[in-house]
């Protein structure tokens, strides 16, 4: 730039450009549009006030829960609506609720569904019909849906302590897994998987994940599922056998994996076989991303007879196969809808 002087540029301190983009509108409309934010501000203030005045009073929630307490028995499912309030519901009523009631696979074990409803919300589990309103406590209502007689006759998870658990070697040799009640919990926390229960069948002390016991597993959609944890071994299979039980018309089984071990969809499948008196009656091949998968087995030919039921889990590659299953015997036919 020799021989040239640097040009004097204007100072860039206050660049004000006016673009009346709304100029084509009639003046009254232009002013109205420009005043809209003021209206929105007032609306937002009032809206925020309304949101906060609609927050249920904890006293009302407690009153609704107290009203509901005498109605709760094992055939009752209690939920909160919206579901985010579930911890509040459990804080008020959790002492009356079992894992079977707060972490079921479906509604079949229940004859009544109650919802502690905040501001009239319906729960996702509700049948497609209007509920009975049993009580109103401020902004909390107690809603009831009658589901009809439960088809569930036996819940195999309940019967786990009476079962026999064996690790079946590849050559078919069974080895008993003893029932232990010594605490050997997992540390707990994120990514730790289902909590190992105090009482369980322990198949290998050196591989503490090889146990069979009742726990609550986080399924693919992060829902709680009360289940029998039955991780397949590297070789062979784990078999849980229940002493003779009167068989009903169908056996409905759900199985899945701990969320973090399924969500990537990269692991091999596990298999689960249901035998009645040693004969295979149903088989599930569970692949990642199938979630809490249902298997229905027609047992109507054995209805009324007593027989041993066994459930086996195995996998070609058993790494991260944190399997949980829940099974019930039902007096409904396969495919029959409930409720």
């Amino acid at each position: 730039m020799a021989g040239k002087t640097r040009p004097e540029y204007p100072r860039l301190e206050s660049v004000v450009i006016r673009f009346p983009t709304l100029e084509r509108l009639p003046p009254w409309l232009r002013v109205a549009v420009l005043l809209l934010p003021l209206l929105l501000a007032v609306l937002e203030l009032l809206g925020g006030l309304r949101i906060r005045t609609r927050i249920p009073d904890p006293q009302d929630l407690r009153a609704a829960a107290d009203f509901l307490r005498p109605k709760i028995d094992p055939r009752v499912r209690v939920v909160a609506a919206p579901s985010y309030a579930d911890p509040l519901m459990r804080e008020a009523l959790g002492d009356l609720l079992s894992f079977a009631q707060v972490a079921p696979s479906d509604l079949a074990p229940f004859e009544t569904l109650y919802a502690l409803s905040l501001n009239g919300h319906f729960p996702a589990e509700a049948p497609d019909r209007l509920p009975l309103v049993e009580g109103v406590f401020g902004r909390v209502s107690v809603l009831r849906w009658d589901l009809g007689p439960s088809p569930v006759v036996v819940d195999l998870v309940d019967r786990l302590p009476k079962a026999r658990v064996e690790w079946i070697a590849p050559d078919g040799t069974p080895r008993r897994c003893p029932w232990v009640t010594t605490p050997r919990y997992t540390p707990g926390g994120l990514s730790q998987g289902p909590m190992r229960p105090r009482a369980r069948f322990e198949c290998d002390r050196n591989r503490p994940h090889l146990y069979v016991g009742e726990t609550v597993i986080e399924d693919l959609h992060l829902n709680p599922r009360r289940a029998v944890y039955q991780h397949p071994p590297d070789e062979g299979r784990i078999r849980t056998t229940f002493p003779p039980i009167e068989i009903s018309r169908s056996l409905v089984l759900y199985a899945g994996l701990y969320y973090e071990h399924e969500r990537d969809g990269v692991h091999g499948p596990f298999e689960l076989v249901v035998r009645i008196d040693g004969k295979e009656r149903g088989r599930m091949v569970h692949r990642d991303l199938q979630g809490w998968k249902r298997l229905e087995i027609d047992t109507s030919d054995l209805e009324g007879k007593r027989a041993e039921i066994s459930i086996e889990t195995f996998a070609k590659d058993a790494r991260y196969r944190t399997v949980g299953w829940a099974a019930t015997l039902r007096k409904t036919d396969v495919g029959e809808a409930y409720p």
């Binding site: 906060r52 309030a85 911890p87 972490a103 707990g188 926390g189 609550v216």
Partner: peptide
């Protein structure tokens, strides 16, 4: 963190929290 909730149920033997802290009524 849902799994931690479920772990707590198994450890304590109950799904009942002793206390729930909330913001605008949300746990």
């Amino acid at each position: 963190f849902a799994e931690v909730d479920f772990q707590a149920w198994v450890v304590t033997g109950s799904p009942q929290p002793a206390f729930v802290s909330t913001h605008e009524g949300v746990p």
